[in-house]
Design a protein around this nucleic acid. Structure first.
Length: 240
DNA sequence: TGATTGATGTACT
DNA sequence: GTACATCAATCAC
């Protein structure tokens, strides 16, 4: 079984605003009962430190938000609406006390049967299995106990670069080698070099009258069938 | 000590 | 489009 190497901590040691677009096109990997389940990240949101009113770091360090204030490259998992889990990658600079990137959606590429089973909806099309923060945690088997885990140490839970030549048994991620609009189901496989990104407002975040363009902190892989929901029309900007 | 609130998903009209 | 499940953290007294 091919286990891609973990991305180093330096990858996450930057502002969530830089990390959020950089995470698009990377792999989130989890070893579940000896099976690799992995998905290509296609949608993220940046949450900054205490000055970001929508960030859990706004109220300072608590037992729940502790990982957000810790070293970059760790997981921050929290309960949502009392019944779901949501997964974040901790990332901030030494100047900023806290920060994280919410992984909103990913395209399953390895361990598809396991992901269907974990998700509990066997007939859902693969691109919808992890299309949403709570669905993603379900499909990848991520739970609250994973909060605080170091994602730079490999199994059981880690971030990795998408291999330039994915193993035969992996599903086609539909990535074209390089730039271009051909990021659909018929695109030829290959690494994601300069992904065409969309940018827009964070989902279900109250902007309190302020125009969202002041904080366009949601990022997505253009044309991906695994996005949790569309980006706003012409206001959703390309080429981030 | 009690009330309100979500970084959601599903089912139903 | 709307209703609702379900609960820890946070906020208002």
């Amino acid at each position: 079984m091919h286990l891609p190497p973990a991305l180093p901590r330096a990858f996450s040691a930057r502002s969530p605003l830089d990390l959020a677009p950089a995470l698009i096109g990377t792999l989130l990997c989890h070893l579940v009962d000896g099976t690799l389940v992995a998905a290509l990240i296609v949608e993220t949101e940046a949450y900054l430190g205490p000055e970001d009113r929508a960030s859990h770091a706004r109220a300072g360090r608590t037992a729940r938000t502790q990982p957000m204030f810790g070293p970059p490259g760790h997981a921050y998992v929290y309960r949502l609406y009392g019944m779901h889990w949501a997964f974040n990658v901790v990332g901030h600079t030494d100047q900023d006390p806290a920060g994280a990137v919410l992984i909103r959606a990913a395209l399953p590429v390895a361990g598809l049967d396991a992901q269907r089973r974990l998700r509990g909806r066997p007939s859902d099309p693969v691109p919808r299995l992890a299309a949403g923060p709570a669905r993603l945690c379900q499909a990848l088997g991520i739970v609250g106990a994973d909060s605080g885990r170091d994602l730079t140490m490999g199994p059981p839970l880690w971030l990795a670069a998408m291999p330039s030549e994915p193993p035969e048994e992996w599903a086609d991620a539909g990535l074209a080698p390089g730039n271009g609009p051909e990021y659909g189901p018929d695109a030829s496989p290959g690494p994601l070099r300069t992904p065409p990104l969309l940018q827009g407002p964070r989902v279900n975040v109250d902007y309190a009258g302020e125009p969202w363009t002041e904080r366009p902190y949601r990022f997505g892989l253009a044309g991906s069938p695994a996005l949790s929901r569309p980006f706003p029309g012409p206001g959703g900007r390309r080429d981030v």
